[in-house]
């Protein structure tokens, strides 16, 4: 068999997974795309192991290790996604932006009683800052109260 067939298939699968990771919004769909990328790497490892006829069988052993690590990764990842969903009510990864660096008010969308004491202090910052931060913050605060 020509080696280009599995190599090109692995490359295309990896790029499909790359698109999925970059374009998806739901965290579980991102995890599925990560699985596709890991499978592309596994296909490469198996193809090159069969090609090289390694005496240590490094490719197939590393494929088994990658499969086991992927299983561990999907378990931990889904546990984290479930925890985020329970805390936030949403698993959309582009709404989880509490750690972003922004020039707006810091920590403005934290929950609980700390919102009230912070809503006094960033009032001046909101006036000084751009209006887009308020527009971003508005639906987030409304969604959190709903």
């Amino acid at each position: 068999m020509h080696l280009a067939y599995p190599a090109v298939l692995a490359v295309l699968l990896f790029c499909v997974g790359l698109y999925g990771v970059l374009a998806r919004r739901n965290a579980i769909l991102v995890l599925m795309a990560v699985e596709l990328m890991l499978n592309a790497v596994n296909l490469n490892l198996v193809a090159f192991d069969v090609w090289l006829r390694d005496t240590l069988h490094a490719g197939q052993a590393l494929t088994l290790f990658t499969i086991a690590i992927a299983a561990a990764e999907i378990g931990i990842g889904l546990a984290i996604v479930l925890l985020v969903y329970r805390n936030r009510g949403s698993s959309d990864i582009d709404r989880l932006r509490d750690l972003r660096e922004s020039d707006g008010p810091p920590g403005g969308d934290s929950s609980g009683g700390s919102r009230d004491e912070k809503s006094v202090a960033p009032a001046t910052d909101n006036d000084a800052g751009s209006g887009s931060d308020q527009r971003v913050q508005g639906p987030a605060a409304g969604r959190r109260h709903a």
């Binding site: 790029c15 499909v16 790359l18 698109y19 990771v21 970059l22 374009a23 998806r24 919004r25 990864i93 582009d94």
Partner: peptide, 12 residues
């Protein structure tokens, strides 16, 4: 799909 799907398409 999030808003940056076209960027993702170009990158991939």
């Amino acid at each position: 799909d999030s808003g940056n799907r076209w960027i993702a398409l170009v990158v991939s």
